[in-house]
Lab assay of single mutants.
Amino acid sequence: GSMEQGFLPKGWEVRHAPNGRPFFIDHNTKTTTWEDPRLKIPA
């Protein structure tokens, strides 16, 4: 929902695949990933 959306880094969006699995869109680089960007520790 909109709650989890608010925690994503700037430029990211979460969508759900037809099977219900969430995936993440990085509008900054125009890419998608199954990995939650929030789980990655910034270098």
Rank of each mutant, 00 (worst) to 15 (best):
W12P: 00
N19G: 09
E13C: 07
P37W: 00
N19H: 04
G11F: 02
L39V: 12
Q5F: 14
M3Q: 13
Q5C: 15
R38W: 06
R15F: 08
K10M: 12
K40W: 14
M3K: 13
D36I: 01
T29M: 05
V14F: 03
P42T: 11
Q5S: 11
D36Y: 03
T31W: 06
Q5M: 14
F7D: 15
K30S: 10
K30E: 09
P9R: 03
E13L: 00
L39I: 11
T31C: 13
R21N: 07
Q5G: 13
K40Q: 14
R21E: 09
P18S: 10
A43Y: 11
F7Y: 12
S2M: 13
I41P: 15
K30H: 15
T32Y: 14
F7S: 15
T29G: 07
P42Q: 12
F23Q: 07
K40R: 10
I25Q: 03
W34T: 06
A17R: 05
I25M: 05
T29Q: 06
I25T: 04
L8C: 09
D26Y: 04
G1K: 07
P18V: 09
G11H: 04
H27I: 07
H16P: 05
S2L: 12
G11S: 02
F24L: 03
N19I: 00
R21L: 07
P9I: 05
D36K: 01
L8F: 06
A17Q: 07
K40L: 14
K30D: 12
E35L: 14
F7L: 14
G20R: 02
V14M: 15
R15V: 10
E13G: 01
M3P: 14
N28Q: 06
P9A: 04
T31A: 06
P18I: 08
G6I: 09
R21G: 04
T32A: 11
F24T: 00
G6N: 11
P9G: 04
T29P: 00
T29V: 03
P22R: 06
P18N: 08
M3A: 13
G6E: 11
A17E: 09
P37F: 01
E13P: 00
P37A: 01
G1W: 09
T33L: 03
P37V: 03
H16M: 15
W12S: 01
K30P: 02
G20T: 07
L39T: 13
F7I: 13
A17P: 05
K30L: 08
Q5T: 12
T32N: 05
D26Q: 01
F23K: 04
Q5V: 12
V14R: 05
A43E: 12
L8M: 08
R15G: 10
P9L: 07
T31R: 09
G11C: 15
I41W: 14
R38P: 04
S2N: 12
R21V: 10
A17M: 12
V14T: 04
W12Q: 02
E13N: 00
P9N: 05
F7R: 15
M3T: 11
T33V: 05
L39W: 11
A43S: 12
G11A: 00
T33N: 02
G6K: 10
G1F: 10
P42D: 11
F23G: 02
F24A: 00
S2V: 14
N28V: 07
K30V: 05
T29Y: 04
T32F: 13
L8G: 02
R21K: 11
P37K: 01
R21D: 08
V14S: 04
T29I: 03
P22V: 11
F24K: 00
H16L: 15
W34M: 05
S2P: 12
H27D: 04
K10Q: 14
T31Q: 08
K10V: 13
G1N: 11
I41T: 12
E13R: 00
P42K: 09
H16G: 03
F24H: 00
M3D: 14
N28A: 07
P22H: 09
P42N: 12
R38I: 03
P9T: 03
P37Q: 02
W34S: 04
G11L: 00
W12K: 00
H27S: 07
G20L: 01
W12R: 00
R21F: 07
D36W: 02
G11R: 01
W12E: 03
G20F: 00
T31D: 04
T33D: 01
R38S: 06
G11N: 06
K40T: 14
A17Y: 07
V14Q: 10
H16R: 12
W12I: 03
F7W: 14
P22T: 07
G20I: 01
P9M: 06
N28Y: 06
D26N: 10
I41R: 12
K10I: 12
Q5I: 14
W34D: 05
F24M: 00
W34N: 04
H27Y: 07
I41G: 13
F23S: 03
M3I: 12
G20K: 05
N28D: 05
D26M: 00
P9E: 06
R38V: 05
V14E: 10
P42L: 09
W12G: 01
W34R: 01
T32K: 10
K30M: 12
T32H: 07
R21H: 07
R38G: 06
N28T: 08
F24N: 00
T31F: 08
P22I: 09
P37E: 03
F24C: 06
N19S: 10
S2T: 12
K30I: 05
N28G: 04
A17H: 09
G6T: 11
W34F: 09
W34A: 03
R15M: 09
G6W: 12
P37Y: 01
T32E: 08
E35S: 07
G1Y: 09
P22S: 05
D26R: 00
E35N: 09
G6H: 11
F24D: 02
K40P: 14
S2H: 13
P18T: 08
G20Y: 00
P37N: 02
A43L: 13
G20P: 00
W34P: 02
K40E: 11
K10D: 15
K40C: 14
Q5Y: 12
D26E: 03
E35I: 10
N19R: 00
I25K: 04
P9Q: 05
L39R: 07
T31I: 08
W34K: 03
E4F: 12
P22C: 11
T29H: 06
T31H: 06
T32L: 15
T31S: 08
W12H: 02
P42R: 06
H27R: 04
P9Y: 05
I25P: 02
E13M: 00
T33H: 08
T29W: 02
E13F: 01
K40D: 11
D26K: 01
R15S: 08
L39Q: 13
A43M: 14
H16N: 08
N28K: 07
Q5N: 13
K10T: 14
K40G: 13
R38H: 03
K30Q: 14
V14H: 05
P18Y: 08
K10C: 15
G1M: 13
T31V: 08
F7K: 15
K10Y: 11
Q5D: 13
Q5H: 14
E4P: 15
S2A: 15
N28W: 05
L39N: 14
L39E: 11
W34V: 04
V14W: 01
N28L: 07
G20E: 04
N19W: 04
W12Y: 04
H16T: 13
F23A: 02
N19F: 01
A17K: 06
P42W: 07
E13H: 01
E35G: 04
E4H: 13
D26W: 00
F7Q: 15
M3L: 14
G1P: 12
W12V: 02
S2D: 12
R15L: 10
K10L: 13
E35K: 10
P9K: 04
R21M: 10
T32D: 03
S2R: 08
V14L: 10
A43G: 13
N28E: 06
L8D: 04
K30Y: 07
W34H: 04
S2C: 10
H27E: 06
P9W: 06
D36A: 02
F24Y: 13
T33I: 06
G6S: 12
H27C: 10
P42F: 10
P42H: 11
F24V: 01
D36Q: 02
V14G: 03
R15P: 03
P37C: 09
H16S: 08
E35C: 09
T33P: 00
S2G: 14
A43R: 08
M3V: 13
P37R: 00
P22K: 08
T31N: 06
D26F: 03
R38A: 05
G11T: 00
T29C: 03
T32V: 15
D26L: 00
R15I: 11
N19Y: 02
A43H: 10
W12D: 04
R21A: 07
F7A: 15
T29K: 06
W34Y: 08
P42M: 09
E4W: 14
D36R: 01
M3C: 09
N28P: 01
G20C: 09
G20D: 03
A17V: 06
P18W: 09
P18M: 08
G11I: 01
F23L: 09
G1Q: 10
G20N: 04
T33W: 08
K40V: 14
D26C: 08
I25F: 10
E13K: 00
I41S: 13
I41L: 15
